[in-house]
Design a protein around this nucleic acid. Structure first.
Length: 360
DNA sequence: CTGATTTGACCGGT
DNA sequence: ACCGGTCAAATCAG
């Protein structure tokens, strides 16, 4: 077991250290005379380091030996398909269905869960899709007691083909119809992120994203802009993490909605422990956030948790953009490396989440 | 034809 | 029994 680790561990550590290093540099630069360029470079460095590190962390989860561990939040692997054929379309229809489903539903409850709020731009909100970089398939809609608007249920398009159990729910807010509360559950184990950071790939994603296909060239620019926003956003992001698992570092890979994000709340549904941790979070977002499809269709409403004041209300929408906001579906995604995001839940002070001494 | 959405039925938890 | 979540047949869209 350890053997398999050491190389990864080294890389991991070095990436994290590097990230921290970048961060420190950035700090220096911020306090002194900041050049935007340097900042960007450093930011890039940080992002990329953390991404790599997190990828390593994530990907070593579903390894053969440690199957049940699945470090990332206990993704429910299907007993039949975990090792076996990816084409397990049929297994759910099998006779043992019910038992399996029960199992799955239990596991599902243990999946990490986080909510964020997306505000759509009233002007073009109706047209502006909410592209979080993943491909979702709607599987249900329900009227929820006490809620004005129905709740929509989505699951990863590649659930069957790639055994990816990520789901999300989209609920339009009662008070502010321009706000959508999106609850993500489970992490993507598929490698089907849309536009991704290092490679400007996956134009299909953007095309399906209708309106915004004046990109390609915009892409880079927008990426930069997004990155800046990202930086700001990160600075202000506050996540409540409930029920964290015993581990000191819990990472929550998630796709970050590229649209406007209000506050984001993560809770981990854990069976046993009831540890309440309330800490600021360092989210390492990548591609979805940088998705070119978004900054135009919606704008940021960065309220921090403290900042409770709801942003200015805008005129309500006429029709329900729920679908728009949360579907992304008909696309054919190129199988790109899954760069989803992870949140490192570690107490963070301005200095950074990781202490070098943490590592062996 | 294939794949996505719709929508009523069904199921499990409370 | 109620409610939220999911399934799956029917329907729609490309």
């Amino acid at each position: 077991m350890d053997n398999g680790w050491s190389y990864e561990q080294k890389t991991l550590i070095s990436e994290l250290i590097q990230g921290m290093d970048f961060a420190k540099q950035l700090r220096v630069h911020l306090t002194s005379a900041p050049s935007t360029e340097t900042r960007d470079v450093l930011m890039q460095g940080i992002l990329s380091s953390y991404e790599k590190a997190l990828l390593i962390l994530k990907w070593r989860g579903p390894m053969p030996q440690s199957q049940p561990v699945v470090a990332v939040s206990g993704i429910p692997e299907s007993p039949l398909s975990v090792n076996g054929s990816p084409r397990s379309d049929d297994f759910e229809k099998g006779i043992g269905d019910h038992l399996q489903n029960r199992d799955i539903s239990k596991k599902r409850k243990m999946m990490p869960k986080w909510t964020d709020q997306v505000r759509i731009n009233p002007e073009n909100g109706l047209e502006g899709p909410h592209d979080d970089g993943y491909s979702w398939r709607k599987y249900g809609q329900k009227d929820i007691l006490g809620a004005t608007y129905p709740r929509s249920y989505y699951r990863c398009t590649y659930r069957n083909t790639q055994n990816c159990w990520a789901t999300k729910q989209v609920q339009r807010s009662d008070e502010d119809p321009t706000v959508f509360e999106i609850t993500y559950r489970g992490t993507h184990t598929c490698g089907n992120l849309g536009p991704s950071v290092p490679a400007p790939v996956s134009p299909e994603k953007q095309e399906q994203t209708q309106i915004n296909h004046q990109n390609n060239q915009h892409q880079q620019l927008q990426q930069q802009q997004s990155q800046e926003m990202l930086a700001k956003f990160r600075a202000g992001l506050r996540v409540d993490t409930n029920d964290l698992d015993s581990n000191e570092i819990a990472y929550y890979p998630f796709s970050f909605p590229s649209a406007s994000v209000g506050f984001l709340q993560i809770e981990h549904c854990n069976s046993s422990t009831l540890t309440n941790v309330n800490s600021s979070l360092f989210g390492s977002f990548s591609s979805p956030f940088l998705s070119p499809s978004t900054p135009e269709s919606s704008y940021f409403s960065m309220h921090q948790a403290n900042d409770s004041g709801q942003a200015h209300n805008v005129q309500p929408l006429e029709s329900d953009p729920t679908e728009i906001i949360s579907t992304n579906t008909s696309s054919t995604n190129s199988p790109i490396v899954d760069l989803d995001f992870s949140l490192d839940q570690v107490g963070i002070d301005p200095n950074f989440p990781f202490d070098t001494s943490f590592f062996p």
